[in-house]
């Protein structure tokens, strides 16, 4: 069995996450995917913003950068461009990536810089105590939506695809084995890859919405997730309230570092002439 200790800063444990939180499941999946990628530990940088998910890098023994709220992808952009041999992985949450960091997210997808972005989507702002986020489903409760959320939600994966990300996959904390595969594919993909993970927040999402404990939430993921291959043959009505999981999008587009390097080389050649 894979020994996580190799990649953990054990002196920083125990972690700060609540009982039943999905962050630890994603963390372990991320480490299994990194192990599978065989990329040297020194050449991996993990960058995060602010929130529960963004505390992940502190526990990981890589080059780790915990930035300002929403800006992880922008920091990662500079890091990657200035040292392209680094494999830069961004870990972020639904609020961090799609509310305050929404602009950076869509433009990084458009730019297609070689970054791997793992988004822990728990439908809520956990760190600040359960306020609604851009992915809280309409009608669900949060501390800033005491009568139910009056706004519709973002579909993060569809947003990423529309903005140009060449690799987009979605899984849940129940489907951890699949998650390993998607994160691994995202890491080895040359380009901007997005892996959205539905992650349970028993404390601030399940409790006010009477969704039970984490076991109930896992059951819900299990019973309501539909593989993309199956989902494609279902009607909109049949997919109502369901989650589509799997590799939702996988295509090839010119990657920014390579495009810039080619440009730079061609200009230098012209100078020599």
């Amino acid at each position: 069995m894979f020994n996580y200790n190799k990649y953990l800063r054990n002196d920083k444990l125990p972690h700060i996450w609540c009982t039943g939180c999905g962050c630890g499941i994603v963390l372990k999946s991320l480490l299994r995917a990194i192990e599978r990628s065989k990329i040297p530990q020194d050449e991996i940088a993990v960058v995060s913003g602010i929130g529960c998910s963004s505390r992940t890098p502190g526990y990981l023994d890589f080059n780790t950068l915990h930035t300002t709220h929403g800006r992880a992808i922008a920091f990662a952009t500079g890091l990657k461009l200035a040292k392209q041999k680094l494999k830069v992985i961004v870990v972020t949450g639904d609020g961090d990536a799609t509310a305050i960091g929404g602009n950076h997210f869509i433009h990084a997808a458009r730019r297609n810089l070689d970054l791997t972005v793992v988004i822990y989507n728990n439908y809520i702002y956990g760190m600040t105590g359960g306020q609604v986020s851009p992915t809280t489903p309409a009608g669900k409760r949060g501390s800033t939506a005491p009568y139910g959320n009056v706004e519709p939600a973002f579909d993060i994966s569809q947003l990423a695809i529309a903005a140009g990300a060449p690799f987009v996959a979605r899984s849940t904390c129940y489907h951890a084995v699949q998650l390993d595969k998607y994160i691994h594919k995202g890491i080895i993909k040359k380009g901007f890859s997005v892996i959205e993970v539905l992650s349970p927040c028993p404390t601030y999402y399940a409790r006010p919405n009477r969704l039970g404990n984490v076991v109930d939430m896992m059951e819900w993921y299990k019973n309501n997730s539909v593989q993309i291959g199956v989902a494609r043959n279902k009607s909109v009505q049949e997919m109502e309230g369901k989650i589509t999981i799997g590799i939702l999008h996988d295509t090839e587009r010119p990657e920014f570092c390579e495009v810039y390097r080619e440009l730079s080389e061609s200009i230098k050649k012209q100078l020599v002439k």
Binding site: V47, L65, T67, T68, R71, A74, F75, A76, T77, G78, L79, K80, L81, A82, H104
Partner: peptide, 8 residues
């Protein structure tokens, strides 16, 4: 943010 990342 990007110039901070690059400097690191």
């Amino acid at each position: 943010a990007a110039i901070i990342g690059a400097s690191l």
